[in-house]
């Protein structure tokens, strides 16, 4: 596969490591009330769609950027690639 890196352009997926669902970005607050339940859902309950999937890839043999790749799991078509850091910020993550 070819991943169109937002900074470096098209790169071979051999340079990347796959993690999984980009929903991992939405890590709950560990000190909040009911954290045990929210963390259980966060870690173990994932969608596994046949179709568009937003997932985390790490450019380990490249610039070490974590990317959010939107990929069709049926065709491997990649429709969007974003820096995970930008996505995380957009989703309200900070420190």
């Amino acid at each position: 596969m070819i991943i169109n890196h937002p900074i470096l352009g098209p790169r071979d997926s051999q340079e990347f490591v796959y993690l999984g669902d980009a929903a991992l970005i939405d890590r709950p607050d560990g000190l909040a009330e009911g954290a045990l339940d929210t963390f259980h859902d966060y870690l173990y309950l994932r969608d596994n769609p046949a179709g568009l999937h937003r997932e985390l890839w790490y450019h380990e043999q490249g610039d070490r950027s974590w990317l959010v790749v939107t990929r069709n799991t049926l065709t491997h078509e990649i429709t969007q690639v974003e820096l995970a850091r930008d996505v995380a910020r957009a989703r309200g993550r900070s420190k």
């Binding site: 043999q61 490249g62 610039d63």
Partner: peptide, 10 residues
Amino acid sequence: ATRTILEHMG
């Protein structure tokens, strides 16, 4: 200048 893999080496 780029980083890549060469014979399993970064």
